[in-house]
C-alpha cells in the first residue's frame, strides 16, 4: 500500500515540480507526486503537472517582461533564459506578484557575461525605481507659492524633506537616455557615471539626470540640513558668490517638480 503524503509533503513536492526547471529525463520527474496525481485520458499525471508548470513560468515571465520592458528589449533573445534563471534562483517570497522583480537588477549585475550588454543592470534598476515610486506613499508636496511667502530672513533656516516617491540612483551608464530612446539596441552607448533622480508627481513618474551640485544639495536635504548649510556645501562646486542663487534655483526647481515636503511650516 502506498503511503499518502501529508499536506506539507504534497505541497512541497508540487511546488518543486512546477517551480524548478523542467526535468530533462523521465527519471528526474517527481515520482512521489506522480504517484498521487490521478490519471484521466487524454492527460496522464505528468501532463497534468506540466500544465501548472507552464502557467507558473508564463505568469512570472509575463510579470518580469511587464516590469522591465526596456531591459527585456535590450536583452533581446537572451531575456527568456536570463529571466528563467532569475526565477529559478529567486522564487517569489511575497504574496503580491508586484515584488517578483525586486532582485532582478542585482541578479543581472551578478551574472553579467561578455555577450550581454553590461548596461542592463542599471537599466533594470531604473525600471524598478520607476515601479517603486509609482505606488509609493502619497505626500502633499511643497508648492512654489508656499516659498514665495517666506520672508528673506528665514530662508537660511529652511529645511525640507523629500517626498516618499523619490529615488536617487547612481549608475554607470546614462540610463535616463537609454530608457527614453525608442530603439536603444541600435545605438552604441558609452559608460559614464550618471546620477538619476526618479520621482512621482501626481500619478506620473519622471526621471532626470542630476549633476554634482544638485547631488550635493539633495544629500543635504536628505540629511535634514538647513538651506544655509546646503549653500555652504554647494559652494565647493560653484563660485561662492553664486551659491545662494544656485541653491534658490534648485529649491524652486524641486518645488516645481513636486519632490519637496516642508520639514517645518514656512513662515
Amino acid at each position: 500500500m502506498i503511503a499518502m503524503p501529508c499536506l506539507r509533503d504534497l505541497q512541497e513536492s508540487f511546488f518543486d515540480a512546477i517551480a524548478q526547471p523542467p526535468p530533462e529525463t523521465e527519471a528526474a520527474a517527481p515520482s512521489a507526486l506522480l504517484r498521487v496525481v490521478r490519471e484521466r485520458p487524454p492527460l496522464d499525471a505528468r501532463a497534468r503537472i506540466a500544465i501548472y508548470r507552464g502557467m507558473y513560468r508564463a505568469r512570472l515571465l509575463d510579470v518580469l517582461r511587464d516590469d522591465f520592458p526596456r531591459t527585456a528589449t535590450m536583452l533581446g533573445d537572451d531575456f527568456l533564459a536570463v529571466a528563467e534563471a532569475y526565477l529559478d534562483s529567486s522564487p517569489s517570497r511575497h504574496p503580491s506578484v508586484r515584488w517578483v522583480g525586486r532582485a532582478f537588477a542585482e541578479f543581472l549585475a551578478s551574472s553579467l557575461s561578455d555577450d550581454r550588454p553590461s548596461l542592463t543592470p542599471d537599466l533594470a534598476r531604473l525600471e524598478w525605481a520607476r515601479l517603486e515610486v509609482f505606488d509609493d506613499a502619497d505626500a502633499t508636496p511643497l508648492h512654489i507659492d508656499d516659498l514665495r511667502h517666506v520672508p528673506p530672513g528665514r530662508w537660511a533656516d529652511l529645511r525640507f524633506h523629500l517626498i516618499p516617491a523619490f529615488r536617487l540612483l547612481e549608475c554607470h551608464w546614462p540610463v535616463q537616455k537609454i530608457w527614453a530612446e525608442p530603439h536603444p539596441t541600435q545605438r552604441q552607448w558609452k559608460s559614464r557615471t550618471t546620477i538619476v533622480r526618479v520621482w512621482r508627481q501626481g500619478f506620473a513618474v519622471y526621471q532626470a539626470r542630476v549633476d554634482a551640485t544638485e547631488l550635493l544639495a539633495l544629500e543635504c536635504v536628505k540629511a535634514n540640513e538647513p538651506l544655509a548649510v546646503l549653500c555652504e556645501r554647494i559652494a565647493s562646486t560653484v563660485p561662492e558668490e553664486r551659491a545662494a542663487a544656485v541653491a534658490g534655483a534648485l529649491v524652486l526647481r524641486w518645488a516645481e517638480d513636486g519632490i519637496l515636503v516642508a520639514a517645518e511650516e514656512p513662515r
Partner: peptide
Amino acid sequence: SIGGHYAHD
C-alpha cells in the same frame, strides 16, 4: 505558497 515561496497560482 509553501516554504515561504509563492507560486502566484
